[in-house]
Computed example of a mutant assay.
Amino acid sequence: RTKKEILDEEGNIRKRCKVIHKGEVYERQIFSIKDKHFKAENFLDTVKQDYTNLINQYVWDKSQRLEVFERGGMYLATKKIGKNNPKATEIEADNSKRTLWNQTVDRAIVTGVSKSEIMQIKKERITDKIVESVWLYGNRPNLLSSIIGTAIAVLELLISKVFLKTLELADKVISKELEARPENTDFKEQKAVPEESRKQTDTPKPAIPPRPQPSTEAVSYKHLCEIYQKLQEQNKAIFALEKQRSDLEIELSDSKGIFKAKRRSELSTEIAGLEERIARMKVRLSHIVKEYGYPNVEAFYKAFHKAETAYGDYQDSLKNWKQRYGEKPQSLHDRLKSKKQDIRERELTRPYSPPNRGRSR
């Protein structure tokens, strides 16, 4: 405003107005400087995790719970498709490739491929290739699909090698056990200890401590073993179908000439059907752990190995307790107590089923 606009009829300066002379500062910072802590990635990750856990407290179905994506891990993040997005088809195709890579990673973990090998393939075949593509061709998102497809092919080749090596090792172990097993074992040649020497060696036993009790992880081990077996059976079924597909592809490549045109079309149809079945079974492999509340196979295997270690420690402590103090006949009260403990362990290992909140008629 000019000076004339802030003066009243009598020539005085109006209320809440002032004159700023030439050279004076007329702007000032009302707010203080922003705290860098609230812009740091660690703070944002912590807030995301806290709010995700808060939301998941009100979600009854474990398979529908939210999860925070782990950056820098083995998996690839999918993009959200907004409403009326002009690039929806491109993003959807990109997400399908990323999902296929994540499913292949799940299968690699089930097969036994180490995390370092998966991360090396991801770095060399995806991260470095994307940087190289941007440097050579510029920003071309349509090339991402081919880059991820090549990485998936390399990872599947490694999976097949690890699976075949595992089968060879299992066969060797079984054959060694059969060779080392004695043919004739005589358990009757056991000398009885005389009663006099037995009385001399008997010493008063100390106070017997309480029986070791399993932890929560040790109790859940048997339930996790069932999920583990399902993953292994599904993986073996996928390998069987892939072997059948490779045999048909070899036969198709050998079928040449005019007179084998009908056989070529039949083989192509069979191969296409097998590929569709394999794709469905791979999706099912990733969904097995999600049905039990785990976001992915990596999270399940972390819980499984933790429970396996806890169960092994419990078995060792129980074995030492039995060897040192032995088993004494249980009273009726002790048997009822152990029965209640078994029921409690069974309830803990039972999978959670959300209550039916529908309206009853």
Rank of each mutant, 00 (worst) to 15 (best):
Y58R: 10
P206M: 03
Q323Y: 06
S253T: 07
W101M: 00
L155W: 02
F43E: 06
S114R: 10
V47C: 01
S360T: 10
H333W: 05
H223F: 13
G293Y: 03
K199D: 06
I271H: 03
K115D: 08
K62S: 04
R263Y: 04
F43C: 01
G73Y: 04
Y352Q: 12
V68K: 13
Y75W: 03
I208E: 09
W101F: 10
S265I: 12
E168Q: 15
A153C: 00
S338F: 11
Q120Y: 10
D50V: 12
S32I: 04
I208T: 14
R264E: 08
Q244P: 01
L7T: 02
E327K: 10
D202C: 07
S286M: 05
S255Q: 06
E92I: 07
S146P: 00
P354V: 08
S114E: 13
E70D: 08
E9W: 05
K340S: 13
L318N: 04
Q57V: 03
K22H: 05
G293R: 06
E124M: 05
E196C: 01
G138I: 08
S317W: 03
D247W: 03
Y292S: 13
D35S: 12
A237K: 10
I159L: 03
Q234K: 13
Y311H: 00
G112K: 06
K222M: 10
G326N: 08
K260H: 08
D313M: 01
H333P: 00
N142I: 07
Q330H: 11
D50H: 05
L267G: 02
P86T: 08
P182D: 04
L267H: 08
V193C: 04
R264H: 07
L144N: 12
E177P: 00
E275Q: 12
S360W: 05
I130A: 02
S265L: 13
Y311R: 00
Q323D: 14
A299T: 14
A272F: 07
T203E: 13
R284G: 06
L348S: 03
P355T: 05
Q323L: 15
Q120W: 05
K39L: 11
A218N: 00
K115R: 14
S175M: 11
K205V: 04
L169A: 13
N102V: 04
Y311F: 02
S331F: 09
Y221N: 01
P355Y: 04
E132V: 02
R28A: 07
V173C: 02
E196K: 12
S353G: 01
W60N: 12
F259P: 00
S146K: 13
Q323K: 15
I227E: 00
D202R: 09
D61P: 00
